[in-house]
């Protein structure tokens, strides 16, 4: 375990899980670094939850190795679980107990001293904006509130790694936004976050890196831009709307511009190998044109995802 660098918190090598002859997880490798949000994407049955359970020692692996904060989840599950917070898909709490009682139970399982547990519970509930319902029964909570209570549990635990399985599924847009804000809060506190989700645009907005799971393997891994370059082709697309000049002719002269394609009335999609927005604006204005819009077209994860699975289907 000496080879683990100080900012790598999870290191998986050749991680495999077999259910009978079915390879639910097939020899995957990945590293998760301290303070990053790592997104795990993929269709149902791609092996995301199984991978998560193996990292927690809740399912035994069939092969390979995982190292979580320097511990082996199979041999030292208690050490791993003491330091890792887990928010399962559709997390459940004891409905007949209040939020405080639920967290108190967790605190006891963690072996926290009583007084410290009480202050941590209040702090954690404040951090997820549930302080006013601390003594309400969980049965009165909405789904979004339950998910936030799950985040509060991780905050209370002072986990170094947070594993969130589909945290935003079934939430309305506002609750999703709030929850993602809390996940960013975890990151700011130095927690490494592993997030599995279906909501691609949401994932894109919070994740530093993503891994695309397909049939038990990691098909693609990297930042959203890297994946986009890989799947959609390299380039830095921008959208230009301008009037009063020959856009294509003007822009082709800029260093780095690879293509200028019209996109509707008075709009062009420009692809360059670098960020050319400043140069484009300068050139259009200098040429006497009226620049009405200049937008950075972020490569969309959804596009990457759709294109990748289309190609995977064609290849099959």
């Amino acid at each position: 375990m000496a080879d683990i660098s100080s900012d790598t918190v999870i290191k998986a090598r050749g991680l495999t899980k077999l259910y009978g002859r079915h390879r639910a997880v097939d020899a995957i490798d990945f590293d998760i670094r301290r303070g990053e949000i790592f997104g795990v994407l993929g269709p149902n049955g791609a092996g995301k939850t199984t991978t998560i359970l193996m990292m927690l020692g809740l399912t035994e692996r069939s092969g390979g190795s995982v190292d979580v904060l320097g511990f082996d989840p199979v041999r030292q599950p208690l050490e791993v679980k003491r330091r890792v917070g887990y928010l399962p898909d559709a997390v459940g709490f004891y409905d007949h107990l209040t939020a405080r009682q639920n967290l108190r139970y967790t605190a006891r399982l963690l072996g926290l001293p009583r007084r410290e547990a009480e202050t941590r519970i209040v702090d954690a509930m404040e951090s997820v904006k549930l302080a006013d319902v601390l003594d309400n029964r969980v049965s009165t909570f909405s789904r979004g509130m339950r998910q936030r209570l799950g985040i509060a549990e991780i905050v209370m635990k002072r986990a170094e790694v947070a594993i969130l399985d589909e945290p935003t599924s079934g939430l309305d847009p506002h609750s999703t936004f709030e929850l993602l804000e809390m996940i960013r809060g975890l990151k700011r506190a130095g927690v490494a976050v592993l997030l599995s989700s279906h909501l691609l645009d949401r994932v894109q907005s919070v994740c530093d890196r993503v891994a695309l799971f397909n049939e038990g393997r990691i098909a693609l891994m990297g930042t959203v831009v890297e994946l986009a370059n890989l799947v959609l082709g390299a380039g830095h697309p921008i959208l230009v709307e301008a009037a009063g000049l020959d856009i294509a002719g003007t822009l082709y002269g800029i260093e780095g511009v690879q293509s200028v394609v019209p996109e509707g009335e008075g709009a062009w999609r420009v692809v360059a190998d670098r960020d050319v927005r400043a140069a484009v604006a300068h050139r259009i204005v200098a040429s006497g044109g009226a620049l009405t819009r200049l937008a950075d077209l972020q490569p969309s994860l959804e596009e990457v995802y759709t294109r990748y699975f289309e190609e995977a289907r064609h290849a099959a």
Partner: peptide
Amino acid sequence: NRRTLSRVLSQPIY
């Protein structure tokens, strides 16, 4: 059924 099992078992207990 209450979906509490995985959450409880992710605490440091066997």
